[in-house]
Design a protein around this nucleic acid. Sequence first.
DNA 1: ATTTTGCATTGACCTATATCAAGGCTCGTT
DNA 2: AACGAGCCTTGATATAGGTCAATGCAAAAT
Lengths: 241, 241
Amino acid sequence: MATAGSNLKLIHVKSACEACRVRELCLPTSLNDQDVSLIDDLVIRRAPLNKGDFLYRTGDKFRGIYALQYGAIKTYGVTRQGREQVTGFHLAGEVLGLDAIDEEIHPCNAVALEKTEVCQIPFHKLEQLSTTIPGLLHNLSKVMSREIKHEEHVLMMLGGTTAEQRIVRFILNLKQRMSKSEVMGYSFKLCMSRQDISNYLGLALETVSRQLTNLQDRDVLEIHNRYITILNPEELQKLAD
Amino acid sequence: MATAGSNLKLIHVKSACEACRVRELCLPTSLNDQDVSLIDDLVIRRAPLNKGDFLYRTGDKFRGIYALQYGAIKTYGVTRQGREQVTGFHLAGEVLGLDAIDEEIHPCNAVALEKTEVCQIPFHKLEQLSTTIPGLLHNLSKVMSREIKHEEHVLMMLGGTTAEQRIVRFILNLKQRMSKSEVMGYSFKLCMSRQDISNYLGLALETVSRQLTNLQDRDVLEIHNRYITILNPEELQKLAD
DNA sequence: ATTTTGCATTGACCTATATCAAGGCTCGTT
DNA sequence: AACGAGCCTTGATATAGGTCAATGCAAAAT
């Protein structure tokens, strides 16, 4: 039974790890199939979330980090004045929940923006495993480091720029991240509302709307509802700088 | 020699770990003296930095993370337009350089704002050690998690707030962090210029200046050059919300 | 002691963006 | 097919904060 089980796992594993995009955690380095199998055993596949479902809420007990299989999630905090501040959008292949490790409590809300499936990775088990698989520890550090770097990048994007620059950089960033998980041309769907974008970029939602129509009028973008096409990538890149 | 050495270490260690504020990495959990000793062996005490000295620059090879013993460091990136975006201020007892783990290259500049001493902790050695000291791994994760959480907090602070709120929150945050490392009343020294503050908060330096004098006029603060005294903590707190 | 230099303040003006308000699409529902 | 609820767009107006420019101050250098 045990032997059969682990054989089965070796097959099952690859697909699960691949599918759940735990890739970020296991693929980069030289983890062998056996190690990957061990990691795969940890992963808990959760029932799909529908649009508006919460993955977790502020104050929830931390049970593990999450890897997005498909879909999109926004994380946000609520200020004392009741303002919703979006701290990030998370797309397929990305990891979230790392900010909860420290106090074992989620410091923000995570809600699905569309139909979404995630894998839960119990963190303490991952830590345990890290002591036996050295490469895993390093990957874990890298994932967290990347997250820190990304947040700094966001800070740079937000500081001292015009509304137009923010929007443009936001779109370029989204485009780039979506390209990672799917073959894509210059058209894609915005998975979030204008409101969400405004709360992320620190702008009024009207400003977001105006900037988008403005870019459309100048034939840089084409927008139909939430579907967006980049008509002039060079110009868009130029506007970002 | 070996025995004498490790005895010495056991004594030396405590002071070094304590002094270098590697505390964040080792103290929180139940690491025993022996473990602490091992960690201490890693730590490289660097020559003090003078004001304006760089700890590292964008693009530098990553050699390890740094723990601030005393002093202050700002980290910043330079945008394509030449604007300097400050991504953080780091005070005594805090760790920096975590954003370089991923690509083994520092993505930003780190410069001393005053006389500063740091300890360098070679990261790969720390990782090696983590496999044998389970508590260490967890602490490392926590430190990184805290950093991610902090950056999110900064995002929340910057988004959708007035210049006054930003300044007020900035001062409260500084106050709180400085209290951690030194006994302190309501007076302290700003280790950074108005320019730095403005580049951090995404404001014009004139706005920073005006807001500070405004708070002074209303008897919330008292400011002499870079020395600041909080006269009315309750009011300051109220303004932050 | 005096000059220099960098940093900070203050004022006047202007523009980008927020705010307020109204109306128009779109999609899902009955 | 018509209805309703969200979302999005558009316009008019107000204002916070940016920009430009001049001056002041204090510590470092000569």
